[in-house]
Design a binder for these strands. Structure first.
Lengths: 107, 107
DNA sequence: CTTGACACATCGCGTGGCGATGTATAGCAT
DNA sequence: ATGCTATACATCGCCACGCGATGTGTCAAG
């Protein structure tokens, strides 16, 4: 997967990954890798800054958790995050449709 | 349309726009706007640097043309550009499918 | 006791889309 | 004449952001 492909879409993916159940960063990355069939394999330098950004923006909220001697920061969607996810999903559909239309040469 | 949404996908769209017929920059922008139903309305600061980049990369070739007192730079796909377009279309399909899988929550 | 998975974090680089700005022609309305 | 709009190109600098590199610490397996 080319580097810039993800730009502008990562936030939506992260929000979607914690939509159903709260999860910590590492687990979020695993979820994305699994659901995407390996296509999304987020490096740490991508994952963690993005989560911090989303929390700063109020779309995610986190709490610390200790499991088996390992500290985890568990993220959950805020109500604002839910709304943002819905918006971004709509934009994604529009975007994907527009790209498809261009590729199909629909003049 | 959010700013970064296009990142990493613009090249493919530009290549697709000149795939069938060679066209100049302004016309390419109109084609994309028309095919996308207005979703892609490329500002000039996006369009022209991107075309130059693609020509530098050997994916597009250009010649000057004079029509009605107006100079135009007409772009056509090179064979390398054709191959690149095919590759990028394949990557787009994979990407779109992966995004869809994440959004659908296919675990 | 080292390797690898788990789990977090930050810094700095490079890419690239975009706003602002500038140039020039043509046509139409004022 | 004057100005606005559309056509048509170009470049500069900002800035958002994904990612590689690097660092910290725990735990299990070999």
């Amino acid at each position: 997967m080319k580097a810039e492909t993800l730009k502008g879409h990562l936030d939506m993916l992260l929000l979607a990954a914690v939509q159903a159940d709260a999860a910590h960063g590492y687990a979020i990355a695993e979820t994305l890798r699994a659901r995407s069939g390996g296509a999304f394999d987020l490096p740490e330098g991508t994952l963690y800054p993005a989560l911090h950004r989303l929390e700063r923006g109020g779309l995610l909220a986190s709490r610390w958790s200790e499991v088996g001697g390992r500290r985890r920061r568990v993220y959950r969607l805020t109500s604002k995050g839910h709304r943002a996810l819905a918006t971004q999903q709509g934009e994604w559909v529009d975007f994907a449709r527009a790209v498809h239309a261009v590729l199909e040469g629909i003049a």
